[in-house]
Design a protein around this nucleic acid. Structure first.
Lengths: 211, 211, 211, 211
DNA sequence: TATGAATGAGAGTTCATTCAT
DNA sequence: TATGAATGAACTCTCATTCAT
């Protein structure tokens, strides 16, 4: 709508434009993490960003686009951190362990970011009523990589013959659960939890030893 | 502050009173399932129930109490269905399988109910910003039973020496994940998923065979 | 309206009917005194009376009539107490003193009643915007008596030649002020205040001594 | 809780901002004067101001702040008008007269303003049920000045040895009563009333002539 | 670009009143 | 007579969005 007048669409953004957007996205993350998605009004976000409310409307087509940007940015950061760790793994079993441990590592350093992510997914409902997402802490490219590894592991005989989709969903859900538990129990030993979870996953996925 | 002569407290409720409450709770469940917790206003709920907005205020002290009732009712129903199935299991390993399969069975028949439950938990934020809950589909008494079984299984040597808390959290998260995946993929074979998940859980928890 | 079906108009009331009305009026007084007129909903009044909300609507045509009854009852009680005390006064000057002291006496024993009265007058606005009343603690018959006495005193030369209306208004306002001050300063010595006020009134009203 | 980026706190207000606030305060005064405090909803006030309801919430933190502003503004205006008139008085007796006459003068020109003031004080109840105020038409600084004058007059022997507090309360109440009578009897001669009242006050307060 | 101002819809809640039983 | 249930309007307040400057 109203072409040219607003930088919302697929336009090329200027540098200063991008800086403002990043600043606002960052303020949104902090705000959601602190007061929850439901209470993260544009007013509050603008206030935290130190800009006026109108600025947000100027740079984003609406609250929805802002939230989309938050999600995108957080997912990019996760993938950038986690993917290399998976890549280093010598085999598929190790890759699963690496995934769990890497995400836990990332959690420790980005609690707020991830709380915002969770807040958005939990608070945003599609018109059909429920979040269109069934996973939180796992970015799309990471998910793809995991599925690929699971299949490769099965082909190489390292992993047993489970349903790949179910295993992937379970893995992600377990990671999300770890995060949720940690958020509600801040003194919980995240590292130990990750180690235990890695063991659980490995045992559930690895091929039976030859008789 | 405390409202007038409304039947909110621990009063004895008449039959017709209880009927209305049940009707409203039911309308709330349907509404949340359809439009999500965030959009489930009292107006909409009342509209769906076919009553005026004031009726809800008359029968419940506020939106919070209504949501509490929804949660309570759904959890009661889950526990009533799942606990006996667990109880029938011959040993701890079977109990874990039974749990997974029972919950999946319940899901199939109560999709909307559980979507509402998820909606409430996801949409309700504490003042600190995130849901105080880290699990959804597992009612408190069921959780207690599972922890007890895990410990008993370890003592009897049927289950290996994992961290009980982590295993319980993972189990619940996996079940929640199964539900979330099914909700976003309605054609997904829930029964098959449950069977796969049960296998995953059992493999991750059972004791190693003697060498 | 709806003649015969409701006992609101000038019908003859049965004994039990009157008892209920008195009970409700009494509950209204207590409620207003405690929570203020603005917060004295019919719900709360009914609750305090131990009856259902509908009973009030049955016995009174509406909230307005109930409030009218409260005022009427309180005023009757005041007049019944104060008029004899004025009547005993030997002369007009003494009558003014007697009035002030009698009302103060009554106040001490009927704080709540009078707070309710004040609450109603202050809280009820006519459609023209302001209370139609300019005095509170002085019932109509008492007012008439005072005006009569003031005039008589002037005719007999005991009181000086002031404007009777202004003096009466000032007298009433001073009494209302005494009550208001006492209500906001419960430890205030009401008896001493009344004595001082009587002196003030007498000095302002009595005839100058002959030169 | 605290709202977004609204200009409520101790911010520097722009000129246009102040203009709007003044406009809304003015509309509030008119509305309260016309329909009474109890019926002066934000809707009505906004309607009279010719703005939307939200504007009030934008410029004031809530209804309470708006009412506070009304009171503050009216009291400031009263004090600004009355205090100089008292200051001009040659002695304490004249100061009392000046006070009464000045307030009456002010009333004549600001009927609506003062009706709004009365409406707010009468309509606003503390949790204990009654207005925390026992006087209306007398602003705090004026009250202080009066008490000071009364004491000074006693020390100089111009005024007799009454209880200062009681005299001050009575004076204020008499003024409030004059206003209330005038409001309910618009044709009443306010100037004559004030003159009579001044005489009443002076006679009640001045020292006895030496024998 | 950025802002403060304004809007209007919608939220939850309270309440006087009505009515079938 | 008395009740509990229901109504619908009105309340204050919040918020995403729009727009003139």
């Amino acid at each position: 709508m109203r072409p040219g007048s607003r930088p919302h669409g697929q336009r090329k953004h200027t540098f200063i434009e991008e800086a403002r957007r990043a600043q606002i996205v960052s303020a949104a993350i902090d705000t959601i993490a602190e007061v929850g998605f439901a209470n993260a009004s544009l007013s509050r976000i603008a206030q935290r960003a130190g800009v006026s409310k109108g600025v947000i409307s100027y740079h984003f087509s609406g609250k929805d686009e802002l939230m989309d940007q938050v999600v995108e940015q957080v997912y990019s950061a996760i993938a950038e951190f986690v993917l290399p760790r998976i890549a280093e793994a010598p085999d598929e079993c190790a890759a699963l362990r690496a995934h769990v441990l890497a995400v836990a590592d990332y959690m420790r350093g980005h609690r707020e970011q991830l709380m915002a992510l969770a807040g958005i997914f939990n608070g945003t409902r599609t018109s059909e009523g429920t979040s269109s997402r069934h996973r939180l802490m796992v970015a799309e490219p990471v998910y793809q990589e995991i599925e690929k590894r699971l299949r490769a592991g099965q082909e190489r005989g390292v992993l047993r013959d489970f349903d790949v989709r179910v295993m992937a969903v379970t893995l992600q859900a377990s990671i999300d659960g770890m995060f949720a538990y940690w958020v509600t129990h801040p003194d919980h030993d995240l590292e130990a939890h990750a180690a235990e979870l890695a063991e659980i996953i490995e045992r559930s996925a690895r091929a039976d030893p030859p008789a």
